Lab assay of single mutants.
Amino acid sequence: MKVMIRKTATGHSAYVAKKDLEELIVEMENPALWGGKVTLANGWQLELPAMAADTPLPITVEARKL
């Protein structure tokens, strides 16, 4: 699914347009965010693609819901 990742004042957030859902990312498998699992505030887990740590945000990526 397409997910937009952006930086907020409190960390990172994910927006899933198909579900009209925006949630804070509360847990990251990798400190650089990319190439691992993230957990959203509502409990969803997404697998993000591997990208460079300095990838500019906001960005829309293809993520997989676990």
Rank of each mutant, 00 (worst) to 15 (best):
W34F: 10
V38R: 00
E23D: 06
D20A: 11
P49L: 05
W44L: 07
A50R: 11
L21S: 08
L40S: 02
M28Q: 13
T39G: 03
A63I: 08
G36F: 05
K37F: 12
E47H: 09
M51F: 06
M1L: 14
D20L: 10
A9H: 10
V3S: 00
M4Y: 08
P56G: 07
T39F: 07
A17E: 14
S13T: 13
K7S: 08
L66H: 07
R64G: 06
V38I: 14
L57W: 07
Q45L: 12
M51S: 04
V26E: 05
P58G: 02
D54M: 07
I59D: 03
T60V: 12
E23N: 07
T55W: 04
I5H: 00
E27T: 10
N30T: 09
H12L: 14
H12K: 05
A9P: 13
L57D: 03
K65H: 13
N42D: 03
D54A: 07
V26S: 05
G36T: 04
L46I: 11
P49W: 04
A52D: 13
R64I: 14
R6Y: 11
V38E: 02
A9S: 12
W34E: 02
L21D: 05
V3W: 00
G11D: 02
P49D: 03
G35W: 04
Y15W: 11
L33G: 06
E22W: 13
A63S: 06
D54H: 08
L57A: 02
A53Q: 10
S13M: 13
M28T: 10
V61W: 00
N30W: 08
G11S: 05
E29T: 09
I59W: 07
A63F: 06
T55P: 06
E27P: 01
V38S: 01
V3E: 01
N30Q: 10
G43Q: 02
Q45F: 08
H12C: 08
A53K: 10
T8E: 06
E29G: 05
K37S: 10
M51I: 08
A53D: 12
N42P: 00
M1G: 03
E47G: 06
L33F: 07
A50Y: 13
K2L: 14
A63T: 08
E29A: 08
A52F: 07
E47S: 10
T39N: 03
D54F: 04
E47L: 14
E22M: 09
S13Q: 09
A9G: 13
W34R: 04
A32V: 10
T55Y: 03
G35A: 05
L24D: 14
